[in-house]
Nucleic acid binder design. Structure first.
Lengths: 190, 190
DNA sequence: TGTCTTTCTTGAAGTAGTTCAAGTTTTTTA
DNA sequence: TAAAAAACTTGAACTACTTCAAGAAAGACA
């Protein structure tokens, strides 16, 4: 089960066998049930999650009481609240499983120790974060330049399987429009 | 002039004197004139920029021919197109100085060599990128939950000096509304 | 200093989305 | 397999913005 993570790491750096052993002793697999939270608003986030199987999401509840999904995390993605994690401040977000999900959860103190033991992991996390940041820059571009309908079709063209996998209302909020409008787009009534 | 960067790095890691010497030989200061570009759409981005003095921005030109600013970079910020940088694909963005700006520009090949020579720099970049990513997550939250007027006041409350520093139309597009609407918000006509 | 360019302002008209409320369909659970 | 819960649909009314066009003000530079 840890293999998913080892494989992912080895896309970016080379691990010695001894590193793999060290890593293995630090990791712990955790099963998150659908709808279960691993972080809620106001908590301090001290953990970083690698999704092995399933799907997580980061969301907020706005002042109208509606959930808005800001980020999804599927297989081979890391997900956490980096601001709360690094600045040790209460989180503004919820982190929830939207399927039964297997994650590797690494506690901040464990990770710190690990990064000292295996410095090349710094490189791994640096590259992965920068690439994710690059994807986020593109997402902002799409949010800024495309209409709701264009965003939906663009997303659907690029990730058709994923669109089938999550409730429409979550995807709607991720693409920054209402669930009702999503319905109308899909029905061609717009 | 490099001191700004050394100081910034030492907020996160400790540099040996020998590291500082190594670093110093690799860095090159570059002066970017106001309105000058260091990256235009379609180019591959092979450089990462640390702003010492002045201000840069990342922007696009949308299909109506209007510029939309996606990101600003002021003193002590790194700015680049991470997607183009890592995936070696043409950039979707422009990177431009909006004031006469001093940057430390590090070429990808130079940086790669540097990171091998000074592995603790991986840690520096990892932490800086993750913190910036955290800030970006908050930005998305604000874009999703606040009205145009709220976004303006919120930004103005947090960065009043910066608001004075850039043209309103650039800030308007960064906050994702039109320059005209910005005018009306400021005049209280909304 | 004057001229050119850039930035900001204003109002009127238009529109891409939201909100609400109610009903229907699908999925989950006991 | 029935009942409950979650997710999706629909139309009508509304609104937070955009767009356009034109003029005014401020800033830059020859």
């Amino acid at each position: 089960m840890y293999k998913a993570l080892f494989d992912h790491i080895e896309k970016f750096i080379t691990l010695e066998n001894s590193d793999i052993d060290k890593l293995e002793t630090c990791l712990e697999l955790s099963k998150i049930k659908k709808k279960e939270h691993v972080l809620t608003e106001g908590q301090i986030c001290n953990t970083i999650y690698f999704v092995v199987n399933g799907c997580m999401r980061q969301y907020i509840i706005n002042e109208k009481g509606t959930e808005q999904t800001l980020q999804f995390g599927i297989e081979n993605w890391w997900i956490t609240d980096y601001l709360s994690y690094h600045n040790h401040v209460p989180s503004s977000f919820y982190l929830q499983a939207i399927e039964n999900t297997d994650v590797i959860a690494i506690d901040k103190t464990v990770l710190e120790a690990l990064l000292i033991e295996i410095p090349s992991l710094e490189r791994y996390f640096r590259i992965v974060t920068q690439k994710t940041f690059g994807a986020m820059q593109m997402r902002i571009k799409y949010l800024f330049t495309m209409s709701a309908e264009e965003r939906y079709h663009h997303f659907n063209d690029h990730f058709p399987e994923f669109v089938q996998r999550v409730p429409q209302y979550m995807l709607a909020s991720y693409l920054d429009f209402s669930a009702e409008f999503m319905s109308k787009i899909r029905a061609g009534k717009v």
